[in-house]
Design a protein around this nucleic acid. Sequence first.
DNA 1: TGCATTTAGATATAATATAACATACAATAG
DNA 2: CTATTGTATGTTATATTATATCTAAATGCA
Lengths: 144, 144
Amino acid sequence: MTVTVENTHAPTSLNLTPSRRAVLDIVKSAGRPMKAYDILSKLQEVIKHAKPPTVYRALDYLVTNHVLHRVNNQNAFMHCQQHVECSKQQEERVSILFSCQLCGAVIENANHSLTAIIKQMTGSLGFKSDADMVECSGVCQDCR
Amino acid sequence: MTVTVENTHAPTSLNLTPSRRAVLDIVKSAGRPMKAYDILSKLQEVIKHAKPPTVYRALDYLVTNHVLHRVNNQNAFMHCQQHVECSKQQEERVSILFSCQLCGAVIENANHSLTAIIKQMTGSLGFKSDADMVECSGVCQDCR
DNA sequence: TGCATTTAGATATAATATAACATACAATAG
DNA sequence: CTATTGTATGTTATATTATATCTAAATGCA
């Protein structure tokens, strides 16, 4: 079973400058992954002089701080919606993004078994995951 | 424990036209993920008139047929080096790519537990993985 | 105040990928 | 054989995604 909890990866304080705040709001309110240049279009409604670097800098900051995820198989960015088996557990957990190549929907999930096996594999390889996240590309139920 | 076996995902017969063969050889002999335009440069040493579509078409074919993997977090392509816990098992298995963001090295791995948990998650979501593959970005042992 | 650090503006361009249309070629049904 | 179909390729142009570079403003703080 999988339940939704707050994002425990996010830092307690973020430096949300106007452009970062605006980019975050745009992506968050979309409720689905958004492309950088679609974000830029929206951003320009608010910050007229916004340019590609404006967006990419804000995205870098928000992804680095685990507020947004980069969905690599879509070149897109989505709001983090962490899930975990038990919100009381303080263990670091590994989330998985199931990304639909047809409609673009992404389901973010996590559970203890997945975390355990990924930690075991990364541990034995000496590999340090940079987002405690794995990504899986496919087709969602609705699109099949 | 993880051991190397032949690629059981690959079809028994491939239509390896000259450009597909050449692209495959280039990526295979590189022994690491290669970018499309680096492949193109190499390809043009053999097929002078090769253009971006030449490469992308060959890559599409080879990825679709599970001979190459697309490494999404690097926009790169690598030769499939399937691993599985036991080569006798005929079950479909899920591989994982651990991709180093510093040196570009990718370790391909698989084991029974990972396959089981991913299959369970995709099953309960009605999600159909298009490559039986998950991807994990981070930093490898050598780079730490 | 003066200095270091972080953030943002602005221009240009690099890097990645596909659209669109024409051509060739092989397999095979009529 | 020849018409048709499906697949693969050639070619040009362009779309999409992302970053480099340089300047300047804002911020924190010794």
